[in-house]
Amino acid sequence: MIEEYVETIWQGEVMGAKGVSKKGGKWKIVIAVIAVICVIGVFGGHKSEKSATTDDSSEKTNAETVLESQKESTDVSSEKSEADASSETDKPAADSSTSEEKPETKAKKEAVPTEYKNALKKAQTYSDKMYMSKQGLYDQLTSEYGERFSEEAADYAIENVSADWNANALAKAKQYEKTMAMSPSSIYDQLVSDYGEKFTEDEAQYAIDHLND
């Protein structure tokens, strides 16, 4: 655009020079060329300053972005390190607790006498197969006509046997009803009798209440 402007001025001055003296026309051309050069310098300076300003702004923005990224990366690394440290601190405590319990549990199992273990096995069989009451089971384990376990072994067996006494009473009541055709009242008396099944009154009543379920 500027080159076209210079060429226009040059042509204008040349055309004007035909009507004046050769010397005077030459000076006008020189002055016009100098003016054009000044204009070019001004526009070029503004363009350079604008480009420099844009470059500086771009460099500043890039630098700020890099600093922010580095800061975020540092914060994340710091948080991760703290979390890892906390996890490592808690882990030994849990492992220590577990290692302390295992020998204790093992020693407890080994400390149970063989007689106690056998009494428990026998009690579980009587409960599962014959639906005996808690008191009836104890008497059977300690009776001289029964299993003849010591009272301590029988107590251990009763405390550790897996049994639902209400369910046992109900199962026994249904046996009496089916095989002996007994009335609910007679079944109740048989369940609570000291010469019968020796269930508690609550257990016997549960059995009667659910006899027809």
Rank of each mutant, 00 (worst) to 15 (best):
V33Q: 02
K198Y: 08
A52C: 00
K60Y: 08
T98P: 00
K102R: 13
E104L: 15
W27D: 02
W10N: 01
Q190D: 11
A32H: 01
D128W: 01
E64C: 08
Q175V: 15
R148G: 06
E59G: 06
T65I: 11
A157I: 07
I31R: 05
K109Y: 05
T114Q: 08
G136V: 06
G196W: 11
D90T: 12
V33I: 07
G16M: 08
V42Y: 06
K102P: 00
T61G: 09
D213Y: 13
L67D: 08
E88F: 08
W27P: 00
S78L: 10
T65Y: 11
D75E: 14
M1A: 14
S162I: 03
Y126Q: 07
G24C: 02
E101L: 11
G45Y: 03
A17W: 06
F149T: 02
K23F: 11
A169Y: 01
K91L: 08
T114H: 07
G12Q: 03
T61V: 12
S48I: 14
Y195N: 15
A173C: 05
S150Y: 04
D84W: 01
M130R: 09
S143Y: 02
L137A: 02
F199T: 03
V30A: 09
K22V: 14
V20R: 08
K108L: 04
E104K: 15
S99N: 12
T54P: 06
E101G: 10
K71L: 11
K106N: 11
A154F: 02
T74N: 05
G12A: 04
S97K: 10
V36E: 01
D56G: 00
S78H: 09
S51Q: 08
M15Q: 10
G45N: 06
P92V: 11
E79Y: 06
M130P: 00
Y156S: 00
K71W: 07
E152C: 03
H46K: 08
A17G: 12
D75W: 15
S97L: 13
G24I: 12
S186H: 07
S69I: 15
A111Q: 05
I37P: 05
T105S: 10
N160S: 03
E79V: 09
Q11M: 00
T54D: 12
V66P: 00
E152N: 12
F43V: 15
K26Y: 01
W27A: 05
Y116Q: 15
E68Q: 08
S51K: 12
Y188R: 14
I2Q: 12
A94Q: 08
D155H: 09
K198Q: 15
Q190M: 10
M182H: 09
M132N: 00
T125K: 07
Q205P: 07
Y156T: 01
